[in-house]
Nucleic acid binder design. Structure first.
Lengths: 376, 376
DNA sequence: ATATGGCATCTAACCGCTTACATCCGGGCG
DNA sequence: CGCCCGGATGTAAGCGGTTAGATGCCATAT
């Protein structure tokens, strides 16, 4: 292994000078710089990251902790919000880091049971800050980690208090979507296909739905079932719905994500139920196949990549200046109206949904209609 | 920051003892161990990764270099082999690393132009080994990196000579698929929707197709176009095909991946061309929506996650014992027969496709039908 | 000629941990 | 009773960089 000392010796200078040349800063005579450069090239010298980190007292590395819902078995019954979701977030983060010459260490936690705390601790010794996805890591653990190093929770519950949170405004998005069904299409009898209880975003979406149903005269929830965010669980929900409702279909089925909506559509197709003629179906996330499906799915787009970028920026800020009080940043979603809701086939309308609230999490019930506080 | 010294001082022992306690090895008197443990807990001590790496002369970190084909703009016209592909590979790698307490550093390279060599170099100073995806990094660069540290190429061309390669046997998979079209469905007039020239897997698939067409009397390639692995480019190819072929459709359209196949299906659907009645369409990869589409897509499944696992294992082997000569490992693919090829609707047949060859890359033309050498 | 100041460069301490080697200690044995 | 031995623990030298402060040099000011 070639070290700084080798370079220094061969170039006839001190290690300090070589270091200065490498970092391009400072005043070094041009002739010296050139000589050192030459030796570096010749030896193929690359600085050792560990030594740099130790010496600088900063690693320039952040960690991303994701969730793996997918069981290794079913590679292709992808339970893929998670999948697509982290992939997009990851790219957003990475794009940001690249600009600053930071690096990204990544780890997935299995969904099941207790988070592997020892592993999180070890990770915390390898990075300058942590991006933690979603709701698998209990608040208590997040709080204890944030005492050690800056932590930003991505897509977590806006209720998190110990750390910064960057999330899509699921509540506003869901509210906009349901409002569209109620106000624009006159739907009243709604059926809800919920996500897993552990998912904070599903919770937010559910809350918005309930609030709107409660606030709208004549509107009611005619049933609901709980899915696992997978296509299969959506199919099961669809079957259950048909069995339960009998001849009287609901006006619309509101699903906590696109995969489950697709599952419902498949169940309906097999049963001869036509969408949107007999019943409307809507999803959430606007994942890849949503636009390809027949009928094209009306849904809400989450800015996943942006989520990653904003979370990353926030984390780097916190690393640069710890001690600022934690904040919540909600990112705008977008209503994507295709035709599964009853909008005319072949059309596509996109409506920006401004965040309902942001800043230090007030945790008050969302007041829908309140003018948006634009994030950042 | 709490250091080893703090712990040692408070526990009234030397740093060596604390270190021994942390690593659980060695003989330390039980009473001492307990006392140290207690202080560790109390202080919330976590070892510094950089210092450990430096001292051990090993970082226990590997790097994964992926490709980002997706332009940041079109979050949802996901050009997503890449997307799904790396995500799956990533999980495979991560699952393996987790078992060994190693960590994963991840970076994406943009598709365009010259790879960012300085960045790769810097990365090489932060890890013990490198997993490099696909064909964007020129052989020359890979060769120079492998001189510095162990490198395994994932899903790269089996022709790579400077480093280990772990890839799916695209050629065998493609051959099996095309053979199915020719032998089982009697297709003769084939149209090819190719992938980008930079993608080695597309190249392998194309080669198998050409070889089979050439080897089958009466079989011919009636046309081809080049796509970018995206749905949109598939649609364009479909439109071009219809324009070119006029009334005389080919028997089958062989697409270099599923996204483009879906694009072709969409173009056909709009033009009133029915699949598989008028023409068969097949893809490659078996990505998520392939099974959901109408008609369900016949394709070849790549073992993406396994790819990651095998590559990771290989890399760790090489790190443990450098100097072994590079090897090529081809992983079996699986033929997934749904109905877009003409197989009866509602059926699903899976056929394991054994790798044609493996071991030290012979680079001889694949002899199809040769008994498979089972990898590892 | 001498003092002065600023630039280029060097010296060496330090970052936090690992570990080879040294040391200490108590008991069994001759 | 002194020696030897082995297990428990301590000492201190690195690991490969960064950087504060020291040093040397030379041109300019006095």
């Amino acid at each position: 292994m070639v070290t700084l000392y080798d370079v220094a010796r061969l170039a006839g200078v001190s290690t300090a000078t070589v270091s200065r040349v490498i970092h391009g800063q400072d005043r070094v005579r041009d002739s010296t710089r050139a000589r050192v450069q030459q030796v570096i090239e010749k030896l193929g010298y690359v600085p050792d990251g560990a030594a740099q980190s130790l010496s600088r007292r900063r690693k320039n590395v952040i960690g991303l902790v994701g969730v793996e819902r997918q069981s290794p078995k079913e590679q292709n019954d992808i339970e893929s919000v998670t999948l697509l979701f982290y992939d997009q977030v990851l790219r957003g983060v990475e794009a940001r880091l690249r600009e600053n010459d930071w690096s990204l260490l990544i780890t997935y936690l299995r969904e099941a049971g207790d988070p592997d705390v020892p592993r999180l601790l070890r990770l915390s010794g390898q990075v300058d800050g942590l991006l933690i996805g979603e709701g698998i890591v209990p608040s208590r653990v997040i709080a204890s980690l944030s005492k050690r190093l800056p932590v930003v929770v991505v897509a977590g519950s806006p209720g998190e208090r110990a750390a910064d949170v960057v999330a899509a405004d699921n509540r506003a998005g869901s509210a906009a979507l349901v409002t569209h069904l109620i106000a624009d299409h006159g739907k009243r009898r709604l059926y809800h296909v919920d996500g897993p209880p552990s998912a904070p975003d599903a919770m937010e979406r559910r809350t918005a739905l309930s609030e709107l149903v409660a606030a709208t005269p004549g509107c009611q929830l005619v049933g609901s079932s709980q899915g696992r965010f997978t296509v299969r669980s959506g199919e099961e929900a669809g079957v259950a719905l048909l069995a339960t409702c009998g001849a009287v279909l609901p006006d619309a089925v509101v699903c906590a994500n696109d995969e489950m909506a697709i599952g419902v559509l498949r169940a309906f197709a097999r049963a001869g139920v036509r969408v949107p003629e007999h019943v409307a179906v809507v999803g959430f996330d606007d994942m890849f196949p949503a636009s390809l499906y027949d009928p094209p799915l009306t849904t809400v787009q989450q800015p996943m990549r942006l989520l990653g970028e904003r979370a990353c920026i926030r984390l780097l800020d916190r690393i640069a200046d710890p001690g600022l009080p934690p904040e919540v940043e909600l990112l705008p979603t977008e209503l994507v109206l295709r035709s599964s809701c009853g909008c005319p086939p072949g059309t596509l309308t996109r409506r920006q949904v401004p965040p309902l609230r942001t800043g230090r999490a007030p945790l008050a019930p969302a007041r829908s209609g309140q003018p948006a506080a634009v994030a950042d």
